[in-house]
Design a protein around this nucleic acid. Structure first.
Lengths: 133, 133
DNA sequence: CTAGGTGCAAATTTTTTGCACATGC
DNA sequence: GCATGTGCAAAAAATTTGCACCTAG
């Protein structure tokens, strides 16, 4: 990934951390993950780079969950499940009819609005939280 | 609506303001709307009541758009369109296959997660912003 | 030398909360 | 009187930003 935009070591590390996890982490999570190995990393840098990734299409936002933005380096189109109790975010790697082109057309015709992307989130209680009571 | 929970005058006014608009407003929008007619209204009260509405099922969150939570008193299940430029939120009153029960079952079986609700958001550029350039 | 990246801390922004007071029953 | 609602301002929490420095090319 280093040559794509001449990534700095820190930018690379942040991208690595983000793409290696399936937790759809917050900026803080990435920061805490990397801090031990990169002691002079600052939280501001993590935020700045996550913003860069969104801009250049290397990552996207899953949305704000419990007050914190969650990021995902998996750019494939897929829904997510968010647990209302522990706030974990799970991939739902099944693209059913959610990319229905007819609906995009409908929105264009009805509102003149051009759809660029969409986000499907299911909310509920995950297995672990269900079992714990 | 007044007798449902013995709403205070302010709570009623906040609910009224929320249900009368289709803008999916922020707390601040509601506050600014009501402030002229209710000079001793405080922003904290608006926040507190919006939270109450979510808890008792009179309103729901559309999500955080551009850093601010957007609320909706229309409890019917429908997707939204969010303009990436002006951040307006539009109802998409067409329930296609987005409530696909098969997908709920799939999530239950695959992850043991119980889906309680879902949220579908389309992102793009609205008509007005498209026309303005 | 220049442009881009970063640490650090302060600032900004949004939302929550503690506390004293008010109000309705 | 009690439970609930509220104003006010302070606090909390998340994110952004100004500025000086630093490093790669």
């Amino acid at each position: 990934m280093q040559t794509k935009r001449n990534f700095s070591a820190k930018r690379e590390a942040i991208y690595e951390a983000l793409s290696e996890t399936k937790t759809h982490p917050t900026a803080e999570w990435v920061y805490n993950k990397l801090k031990p190995s990169i002691p002079d990393l600052s939280l501001g840098t993590v935020y700045r780079n996550l913003t860069v990734f969104k801009e250049i299409g290397l990552a996207k936002s899953v949305g704000v969950v419990n007050g914190q933005e969650r990021f995902d380096a998996d750019m494939s189109v897929h829904p997510h499940f968010v647990c209302n109790k522990c706030f974990k975010v799970i991939d739902v790697p099944k693209s059913t009819n959610f990319t229905d082109p007819a609906l995009y057309d409908y929105i264009k015709k009805e509102y003149g609005a051009v759809v660029e992307s969409h986000n499907v989130i299911f909310y509920g209680i995950c297995r672990e939280c269900s079992e714990k009571g």
